[in-house]
Amino acid sequence: MNLARFDALLHPGHHRSTVIRRVLALVLVVVAGLSMLIDAHRADPSVLIFARPVAAGAVLTEEDLTTTRLPSNVVPANAIQESELATGQILAAGASAGEVVTTTRLVGPDLIAQLVAEEPPGEDFTMVPLPLAEPDIVPMLHHGARVDVIGHGPAVIAEGGRIVTVGEEGTVLVLLRKTHAAAVAAASLVDPLTVVLSGGGYSAIPQLKSAR
């Protein structure tokens, strides 16, 4: 700004009035824009996210969770909004900080429905915990993997299971048809059991340890 213009601003007149009006108009535009952004953010739905990395199989605590606001077009339909609905639930697959908590990330009906969505009609599914006789296979397992349960012999105890969670101590949670789940639960009481990946995956059957 040159000295003439600066001097004009110091004295009443048409030029100063024009500049002042333009500055005020610009300020109002900026304030209106900021207000719109704030209102839009407040209108975004509040959703639950992971506050820190959480391992698969962990029982969620308040410290694992926090809330944030996200645009509705990026919020999954099954997103959880209240921490009370997730606290105490088991996480099916590991999560990173900032990920949205959804019902299909937690062990429950929605997760089961997702895992068996492409299965043919038949007997209902249920989950059974299985301590593996050969924990060396654990690194090869992941949430959703299709497996067969193998017993002593080796003999196939159940086919077409799905891994729900993989524990750190060689225990897996397997989703099976109810009859197969009952057979696996009964066999695990007397024989060491393990699993092999099915459906085109790893299929070698490990040597089983002697019965416990």
Rank of each mutant, 00 (worst) to 15 (best):
V172K: 02
P12Y: 10
G98Q: 02
F6I: 13
A182C: 08
S46K: 11
P53S: 03
V138Q: 03
M127G: 12
L176N: 01
A145F: 03
P139Y: 07
R22E: 14
E99W: 08
A181S: 09
A185E: 10
A211E: 14
A4Q: 12
H41Q: 15
E119L: 12
A43E: 08
A158F: 09
N2I: 08
T66N: 02
L48G: 01
S46C: 10
V54W: 07
A79Q: 07
D110G: 04
N2K: 06
N73M: 05
A155I: 12
S96M: 04
G13R: 01
L3V: 11
P129H: 02
K209P: 07
I20M: 13
I112N: 09
G144F: 02
A95S: 10
T194D: 02
Q207A: 15
V59P: 01
H14N: 14
P53I: 02
P121G: 03
A182D: 06
G57E: 06
R21Q: 13
P154L: 00
A51Y: 00
A145H: 01
V59L: 14
G88R: 02
T126M: 12
L111A: 02
N78R: 04
G170V: 01
S83V: 04
L3Q: 15
I205G: 06
G160D: 08
R212N: 12
R16P: 01
A158R: 07
P206M: 04
A185L: 09
G98N: 00
L70V: 01
T67M: 00
V149H: 07
P12W: 11
V23R: 14
A113W: 07
V116A: 02
V149S: 01
E63K: 10
A77C: 04
R162S: 00
N73I: 03
R21D: 12
H41Y: 15
D110C: 00
T66M: 11
L48R: 01
P120Q: 04
T18N: 12
I137S: 06
P206G: 10
M127R: 12
I157M: 08
G200N: 05
A145G: 02
V27Y: 10
L34A: 14
T67P: 06
A113K: 00
V30H: 00
A182H: 06
I20W: 07
G57D: 03
A8E: 05
V47W: 07
R177N: 10
E169I: 12
L70W: 06
A204V: 12
P129I: 03
L70Q: 04
Q207E: 14
L60C: 08
Y202E: 13
I49F: 03
P120V: 09
R146Q: 15
V166D: 08
A51P: 01
I38S: 14
I157H: 04
A32Y: 07
D44E: 14
E134Q: 12
A51T: 09
R5E: 15
I205C: 01
T104M: 09
E63P: 00
T103S: 05
L9Q: 08
R162Y: 08
E63Q: 12
L176M: 04
T179K: 10
A95V: 08
P206N: 04
